Computed example of a mutant assay.
Amino acid sequence: MTEQTPADDVSSARELREVVLVFGASSGIGRASAIGFARRGASLVLVSRSASTLADAAADCRAAGAAAVECVPADVLEAPAVQAAVDRATSTFGRLDVVVHSATVMAYGRVEDLDPAVFQRVVDTAVQGTFHVFQAVVPVFRAQRRGSLVVVSSLLASITAPTMSAYVTAKWGQLGLIRTLQQELRELPDVHVSAVAPGGVTTPIYDQAATVLGNSAHPPPPVYTPERVARAVLDRVANPRRLKQSGFANPVIIAGFRLFPPVFDALVGPLLKAFSMGRDPVPPTTGNVFAPVPEKEATRGSSRGI
C-alpha cells in the first residue's frame, strides 16, 4: 500500500476544485455568481464582451478565494468565440464541471416604436447566444458524462408585460430552448440543465437597457439583490431544477397571468408604469444592446427599485 504524501494531498485538493465557466461574468447576476463560486475555491473562466470590467470581476474573484481565474473577452453571438472559451476551460483545467450562462441585453418600447435591429439583437442574444453556449458545452458534458449547466432565465419567460416585447420574446424563446435540451439529455443522469428565473433584481441591466420610452426604468418590486439570485444559481449545482423561480411573488404573478388574463392585462400596464418607470427624462438610446458600456457594469446597478 502506497503512503500518500502531503504533495499528493495538495494535488488531490486541486483536482476536487470545481471548474466553472461563467458567461456574462462582468456584471449583475453573472458577476455575483462568479464571486460565489470563487468563495468555494473554484477555478474560474470568466466571459463577457467587456475586457476591462472582466478584469475587475476577475480581481473580485481572486480576492474572494478563487483557485485560479482566466478571462476570455467574447460575445455569445459569435459561435467561434464561445467555443474558444469552452476550449480554454478544458485545456487549462482538464475538465469542465459547471457552466453559468447569464449574458443578456434588454430594450424598452412599444412594439410599433422599437427599432427592428434592436428587437432582433435582444432576441438573438438570448436565443442564438444560448444556442451557441449549448452547442459548445453539451459535447464536453456528454464526453465527461457529467456536468451542470445553469441558465439565468426570467419571470418574463413565463408572463408578458407592455413595452417589453423584445425581452419577453427573448426569454420565452430561451426557455423553450432550455426545456428542449433538458428533454434531450434525459439519458445522461449526471448531466444537469437548470434554469433560474428571477423577478426584479438590482443589476445594471436597467441602467444599460435600450429605450425609446423617454424615461428611466427600475426593477419592479419585490426587488432582490444579485447576490441572492446568485445563491439560487449555486444551489442548482447540488440541487438541479428544470426551472427555479427566484422570488416569492413569481408564482403568484404567473398564476394571475395564466388563470385571470383579463384582470392581469388590465393591471400589468398601470402597475409597471407606477412601480418600474422613473419620471426623469432619458433620450432614446440603444444602451448596451450592440456594444458593452463598461462604465455601467458592476455587480449592482444604480436603480434600487421603488
Rank of each mutant, 00 (worst) to 15 (best):
A59K: 04
Q83V: 07
R241D: 04
V22T: 13
S148A: 14
R146E: 03
T202Y: 03
G24P: 14
H192W: 03
V10Q: 01
A84K: 09
G30M: 05
N250K: 05
A117Y: 08
G65C: 07
S276M: 12
H101M: 01
T125I: 00
A64C: 15
V268S: 08
I205G: 10
S246F: 08
A230W: 10
T180A: 15
F260I: 05
G30S: 10
E295V: 11
T160M: 06
A117Q: 14
E18S: 12
A209P: 02
L77Y: 03
V196D: 05
V99E: 14
S303R: 15
D9Y: 03
E70P: 00
P270M: 09
P204K: 05
E15V: 09
P80D: 14
P270Q: 12
S165N: 09
L96F: 09
D8R: 04
T299P: 05
G278E: 01
V282W: 11
E18P: 05
V22W: 07
L114Y: 09
G173W: 04
W172N: 01
D97A: 04
T211I: 11
R40V: 04
L188V: 01
V123D: 04
A57G: 14
V76W: 01
P292S: 11
G24F: 10
P198W: 02
P281M: 08
A32H: 00
Q245E: 09
Q208D: 11
D207M: 08
H101P: 00
T5A: 02
G269S: 07
G214D: 06
G247L: 07
F23A: 03
S148N: 15
V212S: 12
S52V: 14
V151G: 03
K171G: 01
A51N: 10
I205L: 15
G269A: 14
Q144G: 04
A84T: 05
S216R: 11
P226W: 05
R228P: 02
F257N: 02
R241M: 15
Q135P: 07
T2Q: 13
G278A: 10
P221D: 00
I29S: 02
A63L: 15
T163A: 01
D115R: 06
R110D: 15
V123P: 01
R304W: 12
V196M: 05
D124I: 08
L234C: 00
A85C: 06
F37W: 06
K171A: 02
L44I: 09
R231G: 15
E295G: 15
T211F: 04
A126H: 04
S153Q: 00
A64L: 07
A58T: 12
A58D: 11
T90C: 13
S33I: 07
V105K: 13
P204F: 02
F131H: 14
I254T: 06
G278R: 06
S12D: 09
V212E: 07
A217Q: 12
L44A: 05
